[in-house]
């Protein structure tokens, strides 16, 4: 049975595309035949984060309009064998993304892929709605910050009321909380919401915590999903997320600040 997973958040800039790229790569590395779809029509960026921007010829709108086949539009990832990217259109507007057309594409993809990852645009409008409508599971990407938590709550409300599963009275979309850009030091100092706080407020199961890290920018600079970086907390954290998604019991990491030495504690510093 193939799974449709939406990566969503409501708020922009919290790490949806970074997460879509690393999560789909992680699934592929573990042998799942995976496709990741960019739903941000007009502002596509998944291609840049995956490092395939120069190989984009056709996009999801071309497929919806029947101008090309799905096979022609899919781009094979250069880092993983089992991974394909379906880019968004850069020139069309969001209304070209018909719900019925997206449904047709997802049905067709289900025949050949184990995991279909939908990278949602920010907001709660048409693009975000089409990305979440067919989802079986959802990664709710949330920063430890008030506006992000509030927007995540709003998105959870929409998933519970308007997704295909909700409107058809099927089993609800399985929700996973992913906290990104987490800084345990600031949490310890009482300057940042803790994972426990966020979980208590949003009331959904936690699938992982991605620490704030300079390596995310380095990964996007070079067009390599962060999960491929060596000796990086972010890469390890994303691998843990994928393992938990596949049902493994992996303890949470990167949630507490490293114990600093006496002098460092006395004189502060990061």
């Amino acid at each position: 049975m193939s799974k449709v997973i939406v990566v969503t958040s409501g708020k922009g800039g919290v790490g949806k595309t970074t997460t879509s790229a690393s999560f789909s790569s992680g699934l592929a590395l573990r042998g799942n035949k995976t496709v990741v779809i960019d739903f941000d029509v007009g502002l596509r960026n998944l291609d840049l984060i995956m490092g395939c921007e120069r190989r984009v010829v056709y996009d999801i709108i071309n497929v919806i309009n029947g101008e090309v086949t799905l096979k022609q539009a899919l781009i094979k990832d250069k880092h993983c064998d089992n991974l394909y990217v379906l880019p968004a259109s850069q020139t069309r507007d969001k209304d070209a993304l018909s719900l019925e057309g997206v449904g047709r594409i997802i049905e067709e993809l289900k025949a050949g892929f184990d995991c279909i990852v939908c990278d949602s645009p920010a907001g709660i409008e048409h693009g975000a709605f089409s990305a979440m409508y067919y989802a079986d599971e959802a990664l709710i990407v949330t920063n430890p910050e008030v506006s992000s938590v509030r927007d995540s709550d709003r998105i959870l409300g929409i998933l519970a009321a308007k997704s295909k599963r909700a409107t058809e009275g099927a089993e609800p979309v399985k929700e996973h909380l992913l906290v990104t850009r987490y800084d345990p030091k600031r949490v310890a100092a009482g300057e940042m919401l803790s994972v426990d706080d966020i979980q208590e407020i949003l009331r959904i199961p936690l699938i992982g915590v991605i620490p704030e890290s300079e390596s995310v920018l380095q990964a996007s600079n070079s067009g390599t999903p962060a999960i491929h970086l060596e000796k990086s907390d972010v890469a390890e954290a994303y691998r843990d997320v994928v393992a938990r998604f596949m049902g493994e019991d992996v303890p949470m990491r990167f949630t507490t600040a490293e114990k600093a030495g006496f002098l460092k504690r006395l004189f502060g510093g990061r």
């Binding site: 910050e145 008030v146 509030r150 949490v187 100092a189 009482g190 919401l193 706080d197």
Partner: peptide
Amino acid sequence: KTAVVAKERLQIILAHER
């Protein structure tokens, strides 16, 4: 601490919005 303030504010506004 501001994190405590943030949590309280969120709990109030989200109860209302929900």
